[in-house]
Each structure stands twice: as structure tokens, then as C-alpha cells.
Simulated scan of single mutants.
Amino acid sequence: MEKKRILLIASYDGSLIEFRGDFIKNLINNGFDVYAAAPEFTEHYRKLIKDIGAVPIDFKLQRTGLNPLKDFKSIQELKSIIKRHKIDLVFPYTVKPVIYGSIAANMCKVPVISLITGLGYAFTGLSFKVRTLQRFNEMLYKLSIRKNKVIVFQNKDDYELFLDRKIITKHQKVDFVSGSGVNLNKYTFKEKNPTENVSFLLIARLIKEKGIAYYMEAAKILKAKYPKTEFHLIGGNENSPSAISKDEINLLHDQGVIIFHGIQHNIEKHLQQRDVFVLPSYYREGLPRTNLEACACGNPIITTDSVGCRESVRHGVNGFLIEPQSQDALIEAMEYFITNPDKIKEMGYNSRKYAEERFDVNIINNDLLKLINNVLKI
């Protein structure tokens, strides 16, 4: 029997390995031929995709902004890819791949399972420009995913929003998964035993919506009060209107307020070395991967009681949910761990237990595999 061919569509090549690598391996192990499409493949990720047995495919995609001509060309290119490789099912994730991949697949009459991984910047509604972009994206979502076989959400809030905005109807088939999952064999548990040298870590894109500025301000205030406490920051500089100033980060690093690591690839090592993970995001998340990785490594988590983020924390059990954009709430939660270091060990253990119960990548991937088999009637 000829193998079924699945096309994954991503907005950048690294996510195919970092977020979907285990999923691709699972599909291949279950007898599928996997094609992985992303714009501007680097040789590094092209090789990694080939090494796990998938076929990397380049296509052009303007990741941010709107350009109707370029966006139309992306759809046409994806349509050509689907036809040329005789794809049996398309699996797009993140905003533009879902919209353009779904339109292309529907034009080819190829079934689609789309994964909504968070609505991000365009659904924060912080300015007139963003609200305009939001309405346009709503229209594109409604147009593109109406014929999709299954729409998979990472949290109930996004599902309710899609219903409220009439992007989908209650008659459309939907399902839910707990994020992209985390490989518990890679992100291993390390017991935390801090004393007065409590260390915090934030890993994120360096944009305001991720709460970076609130974290840096908390570090300035708490460092003055508790000099032995450490505040670590990992992330790359962003080409974005809301990017945090590189000079501001470097200044705090030079002053010894924060320890800035830039971009890092051995995230599990950093999580294991630090005590408490912090993500004060007010971005519209799906379910932040870093929160799941922190859970697996046994870090208590401080994050916001907002869309996506709240899914990763049982308040008071494996961390704290705080009010978004509240400097006082963030400082209070961080100071709790500084003055109660014994709680870090207890809550860290609870984080790992929660990861094993809910976020194991094998659980997530098996759920997605069942959806695919059902759509393809395997």
C-alpha cells in the first residue's frame, strides 16, 4: 500500500524541529511520508529535517505585515507544492501558514487539519492599527478554515473567541491539545534546593508584549533589596515596533542587574540551572512552549492569568498566576520565592508532575495522529 503524504507548513524552519520534530518522527514511524515546508530554510535546519526522514521544502512567505501580491504568490506556491508532491493531507500551524495553507489545500481539494497555536500580536487590540489588522485576520480565518476537516486549538479561550467572532460555527469539527507538548526525556527533572541565592529566568522574544519590561523593572527593584538574587534573560533581538531596546538590556547586564544570555539553544540546561521561571506575557499566547519546558525541568512558574499562559499553572500548586501588566503583582510573586525558598522545591516537583500528566509530547502527538488517521480513514 502506498504511503500517505502529509505536508506540514510552518512560518519558520526552526519550529519544525524545535516544536514539531517529535511529531514528524511519530508520523514517519507510523508509515507516513512527511514533507516540511517553511520559508528560507537554513542549511542547518534543512539537514536536521532530512536527518529525521522528512523532506524540506522552501516557499516564499512574508512573515509579518500585509502585502496582497506577495500573499497571493504564497498561496499559489503552496498550491503548486501540494499538487507536485501529491499531498494527501495538509497540516499548517501559526497564523499565515494556517490561512494560506488552508486556502491552497482547499483549492486542491486536499483535506486540512489546522492547528491554532495562538493569535498573537494581531489579536492584542492595543492600537487602531492592530485592531484593523485583527478584523482583517478574522475575515481571512473565516474564509480559509471553513472547509477544514478539523480545527485544533491549544486553549478554550481561542475557541470561544472564534465562536464569538463567528470565524467558525458550532457545527465545525474542533479538537484540543495541550500545546506542542514537551519531550520529557530531553527536558529532565532536576530538584531545586535554593537558599538565599534564588535565581529567576525568562525566555522569550524580546518584545514588550512578552512582559520583558516588567521583568527588568522587577529585577531592578528586587536586586537592590536582595543583592544575591539572580535575574537571567534569554532571547534574541527582534525587528519589531514593540522590540525592547538592546541598549537598555545591555545596560542592565553591565550594571549586574540582569544576566543576559542572548539566544541559546540548550534551553533545558538553563532551566535546570535556574530556580523559578517567569513569563509575564500579555501577548495572546496559544500555550507557551517555554512554560511547558519549565514544567518538565521542575521549575515553579510565574505567569499571567491570561489566554494560553494560564493553562500551564495550577495557582499556588506549581506556581502563581498574576494579573497581566501588573508590576506590583509580578514583584510580589517573585519576592515570595525569594523569602520562601523552601517552596521552590515543592512547587517544582508539582510542575514536573503536571508535565507528566498533561504535557508529555507523546500524549499530544498520539492525539494528533488519531485525528489524522480519522480524516484519512486509516
Rank of each mutant, 00 (worst) to 15 (best):
Q273M: 12
K83W: 04
L7I: 12
E323C: 03
M334K: 05
M139R: 12
D254C: 05
V276I: 13
T290K: 02
D13W: 05
S312N: 05
L69Q: 08
Q273N: 14
K192S: 09
E293M: 05
T169W: 10
K246D: 11
Q76D: 09
Y282F: 15
H253D: 15
F136T: 14
K225P: 07
G53Y: 09
Y12S: 06
G319V: 02
N266H: 13
I57T: 05
I99V: 15
E217Q: 15
G179Q: 03
L16G: 00
D305E: 09
S281M: 06
N239C: 06
L78D: 00
E217S: 11
F337W: 05
P241G: 11
I302T: 03
I113V: 15
I363L: 14
D254L: 11
P341R: 07
H265T: 15
S127V: 12
C297N: 00
D328Y: 12
D71A: 08
H253V: 06
A105W: 08
K3S: 12
K246P: 02
L368Q: 06
G286S: 06
N237L: 13
G125L: 08
A38N: 02
A333Q: 01
Y226A: 08
K170A: 10
D71S: 06
R146H: 13
Q272V: 04
L201G: 02
K225R: 14
N366P: 02
N350H: 14
E230P: 01
K353D: 11
P341C: 13
I331H: 03
E209Q: 14
D305C: 03
N365G: 02
D13F: 04
V130E: 14
G211H: 05
A219D: 09
R205D: 11
K225E: 14
N362Y: 08
P56T: 07
G262A: 10
V112D: 04
P92K: 00
L330N: 00
F231L: 07
S180V: 15
D247R: 10
D51F: 11
D342V: 12
P241F: 13
K70N: 12
T229R: 04
